[in-house]
Amino acid sequence: MRSPLLAVSMAALLIPAAALAQTAPAQTMPGHSTPMPAPGHTMMPAPGTTVIIPPVEPPPGAPALGLPNSAGDIPRPGMLSSPVTASTAAEFVRDAGGGGLFEVEAGRVAESRAQNDAVRAFGQRMQQDHTAVNRELVALAQAQGIGTALMPDASHQNQLQSLRTMPLSRFDHSYLAGQIKAHQETIALFEMVAASSAPDMAPFKPFAEKTLPALREHLAMAQSLFGTGTPTAAR
């Protein structure tokens, strides 16, 4: 005959196990119908769907994704490789178009090489959003008789080659760091056009103003995944 003390001890052990076995129900982002997985669960999007990446709080003590050893290695606003200038509409179309093509192709590489599901989903989101932006830019440029880029420039081509060939263990960190820098530069370019009073920029000002919120959202997403924003995504 088991003692009452033993029975109570066994019940105390079984209760946490039963709680852990329960599966949290799927939630949805406010204003969206796309379900977000419960913490600790991965849900890959169906082909052709728009991916909404919710911020995820890491467990206590968990390292942020791709967080480097030195804070000086983290791309931050203002750390641009070169001044962002576009004195004419043709220069804006060239730079914005080439950058947009880079975003789409880099997102495609991330979809196939990223090691973290959230980074892979971010790459899918970049493909979808920047494809739409590129199409609108091309239509505007053609209406003004301005030619558009057919491929990323040499610098972006070098970055793409690096992303395609680097060790997989480094990919997520490098891709997100590059996305932070690229979106900082693109935001600066679009802000310049939105504030410009040049006559040839006039047809592109509404486009720049309308696109800026999405670009800023992309930057915040990349920073959050990388570990410089709040909240961060756990490995």
Rank of each mutant, 00 (worst) to 15 (best):
A71L: 15
T85Y: 02
A89K: 06
G99M: 11
T88K: 01
D73P: 12
G48W: 02
L101Q: 04
V104R: 01
F102H: 13
P77A: 03
A86S: 06
T85P: 02
G72M: 14
G100F: 05
G98A: 00
G107D: 03
T85E: 04
P39S: 09
G61Y: 07
A106S: 15
I53F: 10
I52M: 15
A24P: 05
G98F: 02
G97M: 06
S112H: 05
G72V: 09
G66K: 05
A114S: 13
G72P: 06
Q27R: 12
G78D: 00
S82R: 02
A96T: 08
T88D: 02
P54A: 03
G61C: 02
E57Y: 00
G61E: 05
G97K: 11
Q27I: 03
G78R: 10
E57S: 15
A96P: 09
S87K: 02
P47I: 10
P39C: 10
I74H: 00
L67F: 08
S70M: 01
A62C: 14
I53T: 10
D95S: 09
S33K: 01
A110T: 15
A46C: 09
S112P: 06
A24W: 09
F102I: 06
P59H: 14
G48V: 08
I74G: 04
P58D: 14
T50M: 15
M44L: 11
G78K: 02
Q27K: 12
D95Q: 14
A96M: 10
R94S: 00
T85W: 01
A38F: 05
E57Q: 14
D73H: 08
P75G: 09
Q27D: 05
F102R: 03
I52E: 10
P63N: 02
Q115K: 07
E105G: 00
S70N: 01
P35Y: 09
E105P: 06
E103I: 07
M36H: 13
